[in-house]
Each structure stands twice: as structure tokens, then as C-alpha cells.
Design a protein around this nucleic acid. Structure first.
Lengths: 201, 201, 201, 201
DNA sequence: AATGAATGAGTCTTCATTCAT
DNA sequence: TATGAATGAAGACTCATTCAT
């Protein structure tokens, strides 16, 4: 009740759709660079080549913009996971771990923004719980597609852990200047070892 | 160069030493509850039963307080890891994973504060790199104490990954209202499986 | 390098232009009355009938406002000196001295503000050096218009001295409550005597 | 009535006398460098190698310190002028101008501090009027010593002007990096020309 | 006497949001 | 619809001054 969700107004014309995209992109970029609190609405507007008034036309508040960003990220993530589900039955633990890790290495902007936001906006975690749940359910589904014998509860717990571990993948990737990605490789190893245990036999 | 380190002024009287502790405790508590940006210096002072002037007597800026907090956390963490090193040679992978996880479940206040800070203060990550390095070196040492045959590079990479995974342990623990800690148990499993691979034989 | 120049943001609407003028006027008036440090930004805004936010819309810092004030003063002074240059060739030393002194007795507000500022803001002297130089060059030009035989170097030195002496004219004027201006008259005398020597024959 | 004069407590012991001197020196130095408002009491204490408590032992307020500084300056200036009076009868205008200018080039610290203060402390000008008057009376006396026929009023006015012009001498001196002092030389010229007129015959 | 800690009113400045044109 | 100006509550930080040891 105390955590109402401010809604972004849907744009009516083609021009508006583009504006919204530009604004979200600007927001994502700046939130990642400076964090949610340190980024000002004026900056976002400027970065998107719009006026502050224009920004408020589409997003009635800073939090609404953040929500929009979060939504876009979850949507993108979700559709990718959905694609994974299709081919899951034939995946080895190693291939599955790899694909999950690869997935986290794509679309960096929105994902990093989502991370920045979730640690900064009180209430967004609460409000986004269903989305988080959806993501986990998808991972859980994948696990049970690989081996239908995995009990539902076990799959759910494993999915929750995997979802959390996946969040550190981008951090590991960023830590390594060169393209070596030795740490990411270790993460692949760890996930593989874990998934093997979970779906064994 | 662009990331100067604000320094806390050391107290010179017994009263001052106590104040510094109280202020750090208050800061840790509030940063965890509301995040770095949302916590005001006035609040921190009030929470510590001091005046805003007193707070600034010892911490010349909000960031200096954060640094102080970070430093105290790293110190505490470090001494615990040091203790682990002692008994490491006789540890099975499972025992080692358990002890590392247990370690993260203790001293929650400072650790959570450190987490809250690292995502909020630009530059603190840069400045704390050496400390992070120290922590990793300790974990690496432990791994090589368990099995001296592990190559140095492999141990270092594993340590980096483990350090990152350990950070999500408190998050998992908080997610579960009851005392069940099923997710934490999964994390133990995952770490055990990974450590086994790293130090195998 | 260490003396950055804070810049006033140019208004883009008619309303804004008026606001800037009102704010500068308010600043000038208050700086003169109470000095730079003792004048608060809130006071200036109030005095101009604006909100503190409006003040900062156009002047991003107290120093930027001071710079703006200084700039306006120098501009005004410069245009008056330019006018003097026109008629200079036919001026007797006494007339020239009189006109310079008269010039300092006009536009009191900005000039007094400029004086108040220059003694209070570290760096403004450095930053305004080129403007000071311009003023002196104008005075020097006038001297050489009166008598082209005056060597350039001599004219430059005399101009520098005269510029400094002119600064005390407003102080002298203020010292005398009544309209007598005996001290100002003495200053006219002194300047006349000096200019006679400089441009003699 | 509203401009009470805070008094510095006279030190009782030899050690105290030295302390007071050190504190005044520190104050003078800092006031000159950064201005009255920008200088903090803590800085002054530090600069003098004393604690803030110690500073307040001798000067009950910032203004009291400023007063002390002002007093010391006036005393020093006064004694020098007194010395000038002795030899005045035999002085040519040029010699007199030179000696006055030379006098301003000595004891720079206190004098510059006095200048910095007079433009910053509301009320100090009022309170110091008698001292200013005394200085002027001394200059006036010198003028009438040179030529007793100068009417008292004329001498008083001339003295007031001269006192003001002398204040810019240090500014001129500081402006010239090298030891040339061409501007100061011009000031000597100007004063000479003026004094000649005042005491002519 | 000496020192360092304590105090808190007051300052500059920021920024989400609203409004008038 | 678009834009720039307006608003003011709120926050970090300062510093003269007082106090306890």
C-alpha cells in the first residue's frame, strides 16, 4: 500500500516512442555511471537531448523512470530466458551454465542500470518481487527441463541461488581489463559444478 | 589522482575514541537500513547521541565516515580470515566452504554497511582495491594451505570468485524470513562443489 | 589553473534577462552594505524578489554572481572611458582630472560592489587582471591624446597610478556627510598637479 | 553603544606576552593571505602553534584579535610619524613625500592586516575613527611644521587625502614583481607635486 | 593555564517537481 | 506539446565559541 507504483505515460505518437527510448537509454547510461541518487533528472533530459519539461511529460517522476528502466530490463531478460527454455532439454550442465553466463554478458546497459537501481530505491525491491519471482521460475523451469526428476522445491532453491550468482558475472567481467575473462571462466566452472549436482542423473 | 582519500581525524582523548566508535556504529546501522545517499549526517549524529559538529570533528565528510566504516570492516574481516588460515591445512572442502559462509553470517552490521557503501560511493572501489586484494590473498592462502599443489594463479582466480560469491551470502540469508536458510545451504553446496574442483586430490 | 572562473548561465527568456538584472542589482546593493562574506545568497534572492532556486538558476555560485557584478562594472566603466577618449585632445589637465573624478562619482552601486569584492574573493584579482589592464590602457590612451609626446611607458605608469588613486575617490566622497566634498576637491587638485607634470607642454 | 570594543586580556607573565605576539603575528599573516572572514580561529591558533583554547585565553573573540592587531599597527605607525614630526621643519616637499612613502613600505605585515580588517569588520571603522583622526592630525602637524602658514583647515584636508593615498602605496609596491618600483616612484612624484602646492612659499 | 572535544545556528548549494508561455 | 524558469525543502558542511578535564 505504501509502495505505489508510479506509471509512465504511454507515448501516443511515433516521435514519442523514440523519445521514451532515448530517455530510458540516457537514464540507464547515467544511472550506471553515477548511481541513482547522484543522477539528476536534468542531466538525464540533457543527455537525451530533451528538456526537463519533456522528460516529465513521459515520466511523471524519477522513480517512474527507474521503474520503466527496470521493466524494460526484465522484459528483455525474460524473453532471452524464454528462448533458453526451448532448447533446454538437450543441454548439458556445462552448456547450460555457459548459456546463462553468456546471457548476463549481453545487454549490459539495462542490466547494470537495474542493479544500480535495486540497491538505491526503497520499495523497488518489494514492488519487483513478482518479476524476480518470474525470472526464477524461468530458471527453475529450465532446470526441470534438463532433468524432470528434479523436485520442484529443489529446482526453485537452485534457481534462486543461480539468479543471485549470475548477478556477479558482470562484475567479474568488468574487473578484468583484458579480454581474458579468467574470472568469468571460473564462474562458469562453479555453476557447471553446481548444476551438475542439482540435475545429476 | 582524481580519487582523493578523505581522512578521519584520529581522536586524542578517551572521550574521542568512544565517540568515533559510536559514530561508526550509528553510520553502519543507518547505511544498512536506508542506504548511503538516503542517510543524512544529522541522522547519524543524532543516532550516536552526538551533535552534528561532533560528527564533523572526527569525520570531515560523509565520505570520510564511509571510508572509516569500510576500514573497520576490512580489519575485522581480515582478522577472522587470518584465524581461518591457521586451521586450514586440515580442512575438507565442505568444512572450508562452511566456515567461509559462517564467517559472512557474523558481524553483520559492518559488512552490510560495506556492501551498501561500495555500490554508492564513486571512487571507494578504486581506493579500496588494495584491501580487496588483501582479502583475496588471504583466501588464496587458505586454498593453498588446504592443497599446496594448487598453482598460485589458479588459487588467485578461485579466491577472487569465492570472495564475490561470499558477498551474496548475506543477501540470501536476509531473503529467508524463517530460520531455514535453504538458500544459504545451497550456497554452501555450490562453494563446496567448486572448492572440491579447485583443490581436488 | 587553480583559479577557475565560475560562469553565469545566460538567460534565454525575456523574464530571465530581467531576473539577472534584478539579481545583480540586489547583489551590488547588499555587497556594498555588508560586504561579500556577510551577505547571504538567501538575502540577495529575497532582496531581488526571487527564490533562492531562481538565483542559482542563473548564478551557480556566490562567486559567479560576484564575477557577473564585476563584469558589469568593468563594462560600464569602460564605455565611459571610451567616451572620454573622444574629447580628450582638447582637455586641459584640470579638466581631465575633473572628468576622471566625476566619472568615479557616478554609477556608485556597481563600483562600490566591485571594490568590496576585490578585497574579499581570492582569485578574482588574478582573473580580472586583463580587465584592469584594459582600463589602464584607456587612461593611458587619454593621456597620450592630450599630449602625443608623452612616451608610452611614462603614460602607462601614470595611468596605473591614476587608476589606483581614482579608487579612493568614492571613499573620500563617502567620508564627508555634507555635500561639501572638500576632500574630493583636494583629490582633484592632486590629480591635476600630477597630470600637469606628466603631460607638461 | 552598539559598537562595543571587546578587549584582549593583558597577559600576566613573560610566556604570555610571547604567546600574544605569536598569535597576533599568526593572525596578521593569515588575515593578509585569506581575508578576515576566510580565516578561522582554529587556523590562527594552529599557525601560532597554540590550541584553540589558548587563543581564547588571550583574545575573547575574533574581533578582539582584530582589534589587537589594529591597535598594534596604529601604535607602530604613530611612533614612526612622531619621529617624522621632529625633523619636519627642515624637510623639502620631495623629502617629505619620500619619507612618508618609505614609512608605508616598512612593517608590511601589520599594515596589510589592518587594511584587510578595515574592509571586513562592521564597526571597526567607526571604533577606529579616533585612531584615524590621530594619524591625520600627525600628518597635518608635519605639514604645518614644514610651513606654519598653512591654514589649519587646509592642512587637515591635505592630511586626510595624503593618508588615503599612502594606503595605496603598498598595493603599488606589490604589483611590481621586480625591484624597480616605477609605480611607487610615480606616487612619490604625485605626492611631491601635491605637497608643494599645499605648503608653497 | 592548557588542551581537545562539544555545540548548533547558520551558510551555500542541490534538485525533484511544478508552471507559465 | 515543448521549453525554460520558478520553487523551496532539505542536506552537507563550517566555525565562533564554550566546557570539561
Amino acid at each position: 500500500m505504501s509502495t505505489e507504483a508510479p506509471q509512465a505515460k504511454a507515448p501516443q505518437r511515433a516521435r514519442g516512442v523514440q523519445r521514451v527510448t532515448e530517455l530510458l537509454d540516457a537514464g540507464a547510461s547515467l544511472f550506471v555511471q553515477k548511481g541513482y541518487d547522484a543522477t539528476t533528472m536534468t542531466e538525464i533530459a540533457q543527455c537525451a537531448g530533451a528538456s526537463i519539461g519533456s522528460l516529465y511529460q513521459f515520466f511523471p517522476s524519477k522513480e517512474a523512470l527507474a521503474e520503466g528502466l527496470f521493466g524494460r530490463y526484465v522484459e528483455r531478460l525474460s524473453s532471452r530466458l524464454e528462448a533458453l527454455i526451448e532448447g533446454a532439454p538437450n543441454l548439458s550442465p556445462k552448456r547450460l551454465a555457459d548459456q546463462l553466463v553468456d546471457l548476463m554478458l549481453e545487454v549490459p546497459s539495462d542490466r547494470d542500470a537495474a542493479v544500480a537501481l535495486s540497491s538505491s530505491i526503497a520499495g523497488i525491491v518489494e514492488r519487483r518481487k513478482p518479476l524476480r519471482t518470474a525470472t526464477r521460475r524461468q530458471i527453475s523451469t529450465i532446470l526441470r527441463a534438463v532433468n524432470p526428476k528434479v523436485p520442484e522445491k529443489a529446482a526453485a532453491e537452485a534457481a534462486a541461488l543461480i539468479a543471485n550468482v549470475l548477478k556477479i558475472v558482470p562484475i567479474l567481467a568488468k574487473e578484468e581489463e583484458d579480454g581474458v575473462h579468467a574470472l568469468v571462466a571460473q564462474a562458469r566452472l562453479m555453476l557447471t559444478a553446481y548444476i551438475e549436482r542439482v540435475v545429476k542423473r
